[in-house]
Every structure is written in structure tokens, then in C-alpha cells.
Amino acid sequence: MSFLGKVRKKALQAYSRIVLPESTDERVLRATAEILKEKLARPVLIGNAERIALDAKAYEISLEGAKIVDPEKFERMDEYAHKFAEMRAKKGMTYEKAKEILTTDVNFLGAMLVKMGDADGMVSGSLSPTANVLRAGIQVIGTKPGVKTVSSVFVMELTQKQDLFGNILLFGDCSVIPRPTSEQLADIATSAAETAQSIAGINPRVALLTFSTKGSANHECVDLVKDAGAILRARKVGFRFDDELQADAAIVKSIGEIKAPLSDVSGNANVLIFPTLAAGNIGYKLVQRLAGANAYGPIIQGLASPINDLSRGCSAEDIVVLTAVTSAQACAMCGVED
């Protein structure tokens, strides 16, 4: 089954409540109509109900079944504002400021809907910079227990050479942390392994990449990756991994046997952890454009509840897919399995 097939199946089973806060975007409304039609989630839109209805009529789509939260009329706004002020009190947040933010910033209100149990996840970013979406997620939702690092992965569905590399690879981090520390690399690897299992449905074999394989080069950048591996070993994580692998040693069996014959994952890795954001971002785009792989993401990891970010150049179909992914994440976080 394709990655999209797996995700849609999980989303149908979960039928999660997913906030799509940017209701002034035509793409969001068209995606909402498709999500309702396919029953991939229960969409929650933020905005003026009359305007949304007029837009839906103009686009000739049905939004019947979608919940609409109007910031100006929301009956729990005072409760939300008090809670948000309490959460951010150490940062100087007051009730008045909290209410202003929640009535004017749809990303913060959307995240609070998740925090307060009125939704299970959020997909935003078609009209908002990534930083705005992540800021709302981090400040309102926070990280999962035991996790300090918010990161991302792209699911790369290969269309060529699947016999050599398999159908699915995960690349991380590709959109959040520019220069991760060793501890952050270890966190990214751990979150990526969880995503591989819960969302992609694969058994993770994690490679921490650099430009050296098992001592072939000496540099502080290599040491950083080796230290990340040491942290994972100290944590006694429950997934297979190895550190200090070049990309070819990680994914090409014949090269892995030569460069890292004692490695548990060399030549067979399916989760690739890049040493910097630049490397990860460049890497996934090269594989997408030159090898024709389907790139799904970024899927945000490490938050206590799923908040995912869209590209501002996204299509309505991209929103549908990421909503399905977010619904599946919410399902996994609640401990619901296939």
C-alpha cells in the first residue's frame, strides 16, 4: 500500500477533529470540502460564519459538517484567555493581552482549541510563515513529556529503485533547527523513529549522517554526530541506529559492507538524520526533484499534540494530505492502533 493509502486508512479510523484556522484561504475551504467528502477528519474552521458560507457558495462547494469557531462570538473565549494568561504568566502575559492574541491570531486560537480539548490537532501555514505556526504550537501546546526538541521529517516515497532502497525513507530535520546540538540530533532521531513506526508504518533503521564513516575523517562536525550516537546509546533507545555514516554507506548495501561492516544499519537505513538543516533541506529537495520522489511534509515532531505546517505555496490537495497525516498522528498519540 502506498504511503498515502496508509495515511488515509489511519485517518479514516481516527476521524480526528483537526483545526484549519486559515478560513479566508480558498485552498483551505476547498480542502475542507474534500476532507468532509472523504471523511478523513472532522474539520474545525476559524472565522466569520457568514463570510465562510458566502465563500463556499462562490466556490460552489459544501462545507456541511464543518465546525466553525468565530473568535468574536466564541462562548469559551474568556475561559481560553484566562488559561492562556495563566500558562504564560511568567512571560508577563495578562488576561487582556491573551484575549487580544486569541481574537486576532488564528494560529494561537487554533492551538488553544487543541490544548483545551476542543480539537485533536491543527494544520496551518498556507497564509502564515512557519515561525508563526511553530510559535503557537510551542507556546500553547508545548513538547511531549520527556522531549525537549521540536523538529520535522519529510516522508520520501520513492518512485525509482525501490528494489535497492525500499519504498519509504524519512529525512530529518528539514525545516526547524538550523544547527542542532548533539542532544537535539538524538532527540530528532528518536522522534523520527517514532514517526516512521506510527505514521509511515515501517520498522526504523536510523542513520546519523555526516561526511565521515567510522573514523575516515576527523572534525568537530563529525564529533557532534558521534556524540549524538553516544547519547542514544546512553538512553538505551529501542530502535536500531548507528552514527557517523556517510549517505552512501547508510543506504547502499555494497558500500556499507566496505565502509562500516560492523554497523547494524549500514547499507539498509531508512531514516536519515542530517547534521544540519541546510543539509536536510537540500537533500530532500534534490531527491524530490532529481529522483522524482514524492515528498510529504514537513511533519512536525516533538509537540504534545500534532500541529503541522503547510508551505505557503501549497495546493488544496497538500492540505488534505497533511490533514490526514495530522489525524493519524493524533490517533497514534492517543494510543489507538490499526
Rank of each mutant, 00 (worst) to 15 (best):
L4V: 13
R8P: 04
R8D: 12
A11V: 08
A14C: 04
Y15K: 14
L20F: 01
L20D: 10
E22S: 08
S23H: 01
T24L: 04
V28P: 04
A31F: 06
K39M: 14
L40V: 02
P43R: 10
L45N: 10
L54P: 07
K57E: 15
E60H: 14
E64C: 06
A66H: 06
K67M: 14
I68N: 00
V69M: 10
V69P: 11
D70V: 03
E75V: 13
E79N: 11
E79R: 15
K83W: 13
K83I: 07
F84I: 12
A85G: 07
G92E: 04
Y95E: 10
Y95D: 12
K97A: 14
F108A: 06
L109G: 02
V114F: 14
D118K: 11
V123T: 05
A131S: 14
A131T: 09
N132Y: 13
N132T: 08
L134P: 06
V140I: 11
K144V: 09
P145S: 09
V147R: 14
V150E: 10
K161H: 15
D163Y: 12
L164T: 10
G166C: 05
G172K: 04
S175K: 05
V176G: 01
P178G: 09
T181G: 03
S182A: 08
E183W: 08
L185Y: 09
A186Q: 02
D187G: 06
T190H: 05
A193W: 03
T195W: 11
A196L: 02
N203L: 13
R205W: 09
L208W: 01
L209T: 00
T210I: 05
T210E: 07
G215D: 02
N218Q: 15
H219N: 12
D223I: 09
V225T: 00
K226P: 08
L232S: 01
K236L: 12
V237E: 10
F239E: 05
F241W: 09
D242P: 05
E244D: 15
Q246L: 12
Q246C: 13
A250W: 01
K253I: 10
I258D: 14
P261Y: 04
V265Q: 03
N270Y: 00
P275M: 04
N281I: 03
V287C: 08
A291C: 07
G292W: 11
G292Y: 07
A295I: 00
P298G: 03
I299N: 03
I300N: 02
Q301G: 01
S305M: 13
P306V: 13
D309F: 07
D309S: 03
E317Q: 15
D318M: 06
D318E: 09
V321R: 10
A328D: 03
M333E: 14
C334I: 12
V336T: 12
